[in-house]
Amino acid sequence: MNLRIREKPWRLMLAINAAVLFGVFLHKISLPPYVPYIHLLADYHFGFAKRALIGAIVALFTAKVPVWLVFGLGGAVWLATAGLFVQLFRKTFDFDEKHFPLFIFMAGSPFFLKNFMHTLGHFDIYGCLFAICLLLIPARSLAYVLLAALLSATLILIHHIHLLMYVPTIAAIVVLRYYLMQSASRLSIAVGLASLAAVGALFIAAQFYGTMAVPETEFVAYLQGRMADPSRADLLSFGYIWYQPLTKEILDTWQRLPHNLLGIPVFAFLIWLHAPLWQYFDRLIDALSVDAHRRIVRAVIVVITLGYLIMFAIVFDYSRWISSWAVCLFLILHAVKMLPAKAAQPISAEDRKTLARGWVATLIPRVGIVRPF
């Protein structure tokens, strides 16, 4: 038995990751869901508003929102994301022995499914879910571009910060899977540009015109009326985020900056921990058959990273942002693998340093929301 475990350490890591995930879930459901719960209460009762789409959908099915719905809905979305990612990995790489280390560095990464479990109920995972769907379905017609635009608009209505968080990754997937693989026509380029403009306009409307049209006290009173247990008024303490201007968010972020910058060495360590994955990603890019594809992929990575740097300057949930940045690169890696290329050397399953990094990544339960861990 011990011999078999030593011979298949990567499969043992998978089992331990599952146990760690369950532990993160048990810890998560013991915490009060301040921000996720209030997003299930806010809807379009007072007119168009930012961050209100999920609450509006919930309102179609129930007038009173129980607290457990945060974990029920968030858990369902997490399971869908995890299941579809497994399908995506099978489609792109298959689960043979040579690709199992790559699967562990992705699925077992503290940046990915474990951190999404810790942030259960938050909106980040919706962007990941939509991007995975776009990686799974065929990209053969303009309908693909229009679907990506629709999903991007949905993300903006869920939370406008998706314009920097996952919309660039969705746009990159469309470029890599549709525009580089099909012969781009004037019509397809025009539709793509029009889609980008429409999503940008929706962001401006949500950011600058999405403030609730009534006083905050009236808005909070309405939210309390939607609660299944109105005595839990403590869960409404974040009602101010529907009124806070962008300038106030930036000010708060810069006031917290000296303290939050202390987490940068931890983030750097976590990124370094995934070195075998980044090295494999670089080999994949180098193996691309078309020079222009290599340049475009590297430009895409720069654009996505710049979006996250802007987020770092605006909103202080640094652990979430760095985690989603890594997830975006995981997804772009899959898109790159779908381009014409020569074979790239996979991650070594026998290298001792790689094994050590895999074990450390497996044992780290998550990255966090604002500060590391």
Rank of each mutant, 00 (worst) to 15 (best):
F85Q: 12
I170K: 03
Y243Q: 10
Y44C: 13
R352C: 07
N17C: 15
F116E: 15
F123W: 08
V77L: 15
G47E: 07
L363D: 07
H160G: 06
I301Y: 08
I170N: 02
S30W: 14
A15W: 08
R283D: 08
S109C: 08
I54E: 10
L69S: 10
A80D: 07
P110T: 00
A172L: 10
V302K: 08
I250P: 06
V220G: 07
L202T: 01
H159N: 11
G23S: 15
L288Q: 07
I5L: 15
V24Q: 14
P365A: 11
M165F: 01
I57R: 06
L261C: 11
G368R: 03
L151T: 00
W325T: 00
I16V: 13
Q345R: 13
A190W: 05
V303Y: 13
Y44K: 14
L284K: 10
G75P: 05
A356P: 03
P66W: 07
L193Y: 04
Y37D: 13
F85I: 02
L270V: 01
Y240R: 12
P32Q: 10
I104D: 11
L176Q: 10
G192C: 14
P101L: 10
N17W: 07
Q87S: 12
F238Y: 11
L257I: 05
L261T: 00
I285S: 10
T362I: 01
V315Y: 13
A149T: 00
R294D: 14
P9A: 09
L79F: 11
W321R: 07
L135R: 01
P138C: 08
